[in-house]
Design a protein around this nucleic acid. Structure first.
Lengths: 238, 238
DNA sequence: TCTTGTCTACTACCATACAAGTCGGGATGC
DNA sequence: GCATCCCGACTTGTATGGTAGTAGACAAGA
């Protein structure tokens, strides 16, 4: 399941363990609900229990695992409510960012976003899903960092952790990439036209895309989802 | 500086250490820039280094301390940019929350908010600053939790950690409490009138209050502030 | 059959020891 | 006097041992 970390003294071991585990969780290599043992993970990665423990703590801060004292650590199941809550916060923050961006994002950054969009089209044409996901993330990140919203982006990243698992789950028969690209285009158009309202509206539409696939996924993979009541209730957008 | 924790097996030691240190930092009992030693803190609290270390890691996640490997851990100085960034995110999230609240907050919660407001007036009349701060926080929290935005509130709490230090710094000659109360009143009026626009505008005004005192405080306490360039630049609201 | 107590294997938690790196001061050579 | 080197007192990072507690299997008794 996990491969030994190669020795690399440049970065603290604990941090690498954290990244490794986080990646494994958001890409669904670790199934929701699965128990994680400090000892077992430490053994597989070839490190001691201590850094693994620290990584577990960080993961629990991110809401990706739950540590139940004296019992064990478990990958949290996907919670529809949690995903909705994360989406709500992400929308709030990214809308604020996009308004600022449409007022003061520099032409240079706008140009690089155009280039990114082109790369997205190529990745979509070649059916390179993984690459598209990376470009997608870079698109949003560049906008935020382009208007010096580093902290806002950090918050968005946190919320993304919850949403990315859903994203990966829907990868095979995903939302058509073309539609997402068009949405990205609209967002960029709004920025370039210096129209906060248009850009905000485009971003709002874009970020609500996940709501469409969520209920279906929750029904199709009931084992991976937490059985919170909201799962069967109608989805309210905001 | 710190008192020994009394034995209480109900809660993990690490968590209590974290809370204790966090409180000491946001109330300015620990001065920005001050070095913190795992060993020293552990000795004062009567615990081992391990839980202290875990608390340090959590604090660094919250941006309250910086851990410099093999060198030491330090209380971060107040950064004008960081405070502004936190405020930006807080505004984005709380505005979204307040819009939802003005649509669906239950009359029961609205009633308890009215009661809270009355308590705020009494606290202000008696010059009980600490009590007012607690009521203030409860006011915002009740609104968020009242519309089931638990996660959104968690994010706001994170951002508040940065802002609260400024708050405490300005306590003695603070913003007149009366003004804050009036602002709270306007917010509640907007909710009760089911007017998202009015409530949002009132909240926006309220959350920008801190911008007024920030530049002055940065000038008056240069030692407590990080010397980032933004400190002397004009403040832009959003 | 069902309840209850025990015993085992597991867990996270905490304390402690060791390793590795940083920084400053003093001795040493020039 | 001044630059350089080295050593020791710090720091955080990592490894490991021991403790307390939980869950579950299983057997004894009602």
């Amino acid at each position: 399941m996990l491969v030994r970390l190669e020795p690399d003294s440049s970065e603290p071991v604990a941090r690498r363990v954290f990244r490794e585990l986080r990646q494994a969780i958001v890409t669904m290599r670790f199934q929701p609900g699965q128990p994680l043992s400090e000892q077992e993970v430490a053994g597989q990665l070839g490190v001691s229990r201590q850094p693994v423990r620290e990584a577990f703590i960080k993961l629990s801060e991110s809401g990706l695992v739950t540590i139940r004292p004296q019992r064990g650590t478990f990958v949290v199941k996907i919670s529809v409510k949690q995903v909705m809550d994360a989406r709500f916060v992400r929308e709030a923050v990214e809308l604020a960012v996009i308004r600022r961006a449409s007022e003061e994002l520099s032409p240079g950054v706008i140009g690089s976003l155009r280039a990114n969009l082109q790369a997205q089209r190529e990745a979509a044409a070649d059916q390179q899903h993984e690459r598209f996901l990376a470009l997608d993330e870079a698109f949003h990140r560049s906008i935020a960092l382009g208007v010096e919203c580093e902290y806002a982006w950090r918050v968005v990243e946190e919320t993304k952790a919850q949403m990315d698992r859903v994203r990966y789950l829907s990868l095979p028969q995903a939302t058509p990439l073309d539609r997402l690209i068009v949405q990205h285009e609209r967002i960029l158009d709004g920025i370039e036209a210096r129209s906060p309202d248009n850009a905000e509206a485009a971003m709002r539409t874009h970020l609500r895309e996940i709501l469409k696939s969520l209920p279906e996924l929750a029904q199709r993979f009931p084992d991976l989802f937490d059985s919170d009541a909201a799962a069967t209730q109608p989805i309210r957008p905001a």
